[in-house]
Design a binder for these strands. Structure first.
Lengths: 161, 161
DNA sequence: CAATCTAGTTTCATTATGCAACCACTGGAG
DNA sequence: CTCCAGTGGTTGCATAATGAAACTAGATTG
């Protein structure tokens, strides 16, 4: 096979999410959708995507349960694309990407916008990892565990990633 | 031009980070690197990437300042790839992707591992967005603001995303 | 110094991307 | 009802990216 490798059956959850939204456009489409964009033409003009690509991506996102097509909304007979809960659940991913850019980009002055909380207009706090009891965790403070107790029989290489 | 569109000059920080790590392999390479993988061959065997692709990705990650090549480390004359602070800073992105999978995947039973804190062995808490003062924020509680005061002269369409 | 390992590069077939052209259906003006 | 612009796509074609396998140069081992 010379197909682009798929991570569908992969046991790693990171690979699994990349399977659904790991290409150039999907996350940007979700970003626009989170800001209320619903119509094909609006996605197209805001993102500047070719229409065939946009069409393919929207279809893929619908298949993955991230977007839903609703037959109407404002009276017209056209359809709209709206986020499902799964789609809205991707918000932290976008925030993480945004904050990474804000912190490490080589030309931060080119970044046009900041994410603020609507009430106070102040930047949102950096996402942080915490333990169940609230302790702040660094990457080194974490580790991976097999999801279910491993087979008692073998001490072979455990599941990874 | 029929080149793949680049987001380099884009003002949206999400697009900017996707420019650096928005392809299929980069994030997986960073994932492995976070778990201590350093050598070309180790990346190759753990990820199953073709060597030419891996070579190109590693080079790109080095160019973006996410990985660094260190000429030695264990005595041998080979080189290693280690994460820079910028690379380690991508950890929350990976955690966000992982948690999204854990929460919304259609077949969560196929996910092999959970991320736990090393001390207690308990799952890490879900990432949450908070305001400066600690209030929990939902997507709807946030909005985008232009980074610097917009030019006083024009009331044209403001910066987006 | 021969065999093998590591870390790639090269070659070539297959896919995906992107632009432009085309087409079907809507919604409105007359 | 008819014409006609706008919406929401699909199709075709050129180019770029991906992936498997073969090849290679330097390092390490024996």
């Amino acid at each position: 096979m010379v197909k682009r490798t798929s991570f569908e059956g992969d046991a790693c959850p990171i690979a699994r999410s990349l399977e659904a939204l790991g290409d150039w456009w999907s996350l940007l489409i979700i970003r626009e959708a989170l800001f209320g964009v619903r119509r094909f033409g609006e996605f197209q003009s805001r993102l500047g995507t070719a229409k065939n690509i946009l069409s393919a991506r929207l279809r893929s996102l619908v298949e993955h349960g991230i977007l839903e097509t609703t037959p109407a909304s404002d009276g017209s007979a056209y359809q709209e694309y709206v986020l499902t809960p799964k789609g809205r659940g991707a918000f932290p991913i976008l925030v993480a990407l945004r904050q990474w850019s804000e912190e490490f980009d080589d030309h931060p002055e080119e970044i046009a916008t900041i994410l603020v909380d609507r009430d106070k207009g102040r930047p949102v706090k950096r996402l942080e990892m915490r333990a169940e009891d609230g302790r702040l965790l660094s990457p080194a403070d974490t580790t991976l565990k097999p999801r279910l107790a491993p087979r008692r029989s073998s001490a072979k290489a455990g599941p990874r990633s």
